[in-house]
């Protein structure tokens, strides 16, 4: 009986202290970390069409179409199947890809989730931080850029 009363006392304490840990979304949007990986943003100005992101993507989310002179024509992203692993951002040599802090996007059908490069430009940007800076301390650490001799390609 003591144990039951203890449990009831704990719940009552929580009920009466008036504290909540849930927030009223969307009025109170949850804080996301500077490292948060949200929707992919693509910069056509920076891109050198090296196709490394397309190669590293584990589930073919990124599709690049080039013309016969290897100039980029299309950059399509099937954001609906993106798993937000951030490997594309990691391998990009020119910072043309950044995963933003935006996680709020919806569509009526799966097909609406295919973004082309124009649409990717309009993805909402970081909230108040400079995207490149926020990643800067980490960028040196990215995979495989070791300086030792073993690094072959």
């Amino acid at each position: 009986m003591i144990g039951i009363l203890k449990g009831m006392a704990v719940t009552l304490k929580h009920a009466l202290d008036g504290q909540t840990f849930t927030v009223e979304y969307p009025e109170t949007a949850p804080e996301v970390s500077p490292r948060f990986r949200g929707v992919h943003k693509f910069s056509q100005e920076r891109c050198i069409w090296c196709r490394q992101c397309e190669n590293v993507c584990p589930n073919d989310t990124i599709q690049i179409v080039q013309d016969d002179k290897r100039n980029g024509e299309q950059y399509n992203l099937h954001i609906g199947q993106c798993i937000y692993c951030r490997l594309c951002e990691e391998v990009c040599p020119v910072d043309a890809i950044l995963l933003t802090q935006n996680f709020e996007f919806t569509a009526d059908t799966k097909n609406d989730f295919v973004y082309n490069k124009e649409q990717l430009k309009n993805v909402p940007w970081y909230k108040d931080i400079d995207p490149l800076n926020s990643r800067n301390p980490d960028r040196n650490a990215w995979v495989g850029e070791g300086e030792g001799e073993v690094d072959y390609q």
Partner: peptide, 13 residues
């Protein structure tokens, strides 16, 4: 409302 108060939630508002 009552269940939410016990569970530290906000509930219908």
């Amino acid at each position: 409302k009552i269940t939410a108060a016990f569970g530290d939630r906000i509930a219908v508002n």
